[in-house]
C-alpha cells in the first residue's frame, strides 16, 4: 500500500520533472532560432559590408557586379519613415486622446474606434500596399516617395494609436480630476497630459518606426525604386527592404552578397530601434 502510494508520488514528480525539461528545451529552441538568424545574417553580411556600401550610390553596371553602394536605399528608407512617422503621429495622437478623454468610457463609439484600430493593426501590409496603389492610380500619382510615405503611414497608424492608448489608460485619474477642478477645459487638460506622457509617445513612435522601416510589401508598388536619392516627394525612392529583395533575386553572386550586407544594415537599424524602445518603456515604468 505504502509502496504504491510512493510509486504514484514519484510518477507525479517525474511527470513534472520531464515536462519542466521539455519546456526548458522549448524555450532554448526559441532562443537558438533567434541566435541562428542573427548569426546567419551577421556572418554573411559582414563579408561584403564596406564603407563604400553604406556611403555611395549605385554606379553604372551595379546590378551586374559593378561598384557602388546602397546609400540611395538607406536614405530613401530614412526619408520615407520620417515622413510616415510625422503623418501618423499627427493623426494617432488625436485618435488616442479622443478615445480616452472625449468619448464616453465604455460607450459604443469608443469601443468601435478601439475595435477598428485593432482590426487595422491586423490587416496585412500587402493589402495596404495594394490599396495605396489603387488610390494613387485614382489620383493619377506615379510610384513616388509621397506614395510610399502615405502607404507606410497607413501601416503604422494603428500601431501608434494602440501604443499611445496603452500609455493613456495608465494616466492616473487624480491628474485628470485635479486639472478639471482647477477649471481647465478638456483641450487644456489634454495638453498637460500630453506633456506628462511624452516618453510614452516617444516609445510608441519608435515601435512604429521599427515596424515601418522593415516592411517591403507596402512600398513594393507605392514607392518604386531608383538609383538616385529623391530630390522631391514626387520622385520614386529606393528602400532598404526592396534593395535586399531585388538584389537577392539577381543571379550574380556579387549582387547577392550585397543583398546580405544590406540585410545586415537593416537588421542593425531595427535592433537598435527595438532595444532603445525597450529601454524607453522600462524608464517609463
Amino acid at each position: 500500500m505504502i509502496k504504491t502510494k510512493y510509486q504514484r508520488l514519484t510518477k507525479r514528480y517525474l511527470t513534472e520533472q520531464i515536462m519542466l525539461m521539455v519546456m526548458r528545451l522549448a524555450a532554448l529552441a526559441i532562443l537558438s532560432v533567434l541566435a541562428f538568424i542573427l548569426y546567419t545574417i551577421a556572418a554573411k553580411g559582414l563579408k561584403s559590408l564596406s564603407w563604400e556600401m553604406v556611403s555611395s550610390l549605385p554606379e553604372g553596371g551595379y546590378y551586374l557586379g559593378g561598384s557602388g553602394g546602397i546609400a540611395n536605399a538607406i536614405i530613401g528608407s530614412l526619408l520615407m519613415i520620417s515622413g510616415s512617422a510625422i503623418i501618423a503621429i499627427l493623426i494617432s495622437l488625436p485618435i488616442a486622446f479622443c478615445i480616452n478623454f472625449i468619448l464616453k468610457k465604455g460607450g459604443w463609439f469608443g469601443n468601435i474606434a478601439r475595435f477598428s484600430m485593432d482590426i487595422l493593426f491586423g490587416i496585412p501590409s500587402i493589402v495596404y500596399g495594394a490599396f495605396g496603389f489603387l488610390i494613387m492610380v485614382w489620383l493619377g500619382l506615379q510610384a513616388s516617395l509621397l506614395g510610399g510615405i502615405i502607404a507606410v503611414a497607413f501601416l503604422i497608424l494603428p500601431i501608434m494609436v494602440r501604443a499611445i492608448d496603452e500609455v493613456l489608460i495608465m494616466v492616473p485619474s487624480d491628474l485628470k480630476e485635479s486639472l478639471q477642478s482647477l477649471g481647465a477645459t478638456r483641450y487644456e487638460m489634454m495638453k498637460v497630459i500630453l506633456k506628462s506622457i511624452l516618453p510614452g509617445v516617444g516609445s510608441a513612435i519608435m515601435l512604429a518606426i521599427g515596424r515601418g522601416i522593415g516592411d517591403a510589401a507596402t512600398v513594393l508598388f507605392t514607392a518604386g525604386y531608383t538609383d538616385s536619392i529623391p530630390t522631391s516627394v514626387n520622385d520614386p525612392a529606393a528602400t532598404l527592404p526592396l534593395a535586399i529583395f531585388f538584389q537577392l533575386s539577381s543571379p550574380m553572386e556579387e549582387v547577392q552578397n550585397r543583398a546580405y550586407a544590406a540585410a545586415l544594415i537593416l537588421t542593425i537599424i531595427v535592433l537598435i530601434i527595438s532595444l532603445s524602445t525597450r529601454q524607453l518603456t522600462r524608464r517609463i515604468k
Partner: peptide
Amino acid sequence: FFMPVIDLLSGIPPVIYGVWGTLT
C-alpha cells in the same frame, strides 16, 4: 532575460526572415 528575445523576434523585418530562409 527572455522578454527582449521575444521582442527582437517580433521586431525582425519579414524580408530578413526571408533572407535567413533562403540562406539556411
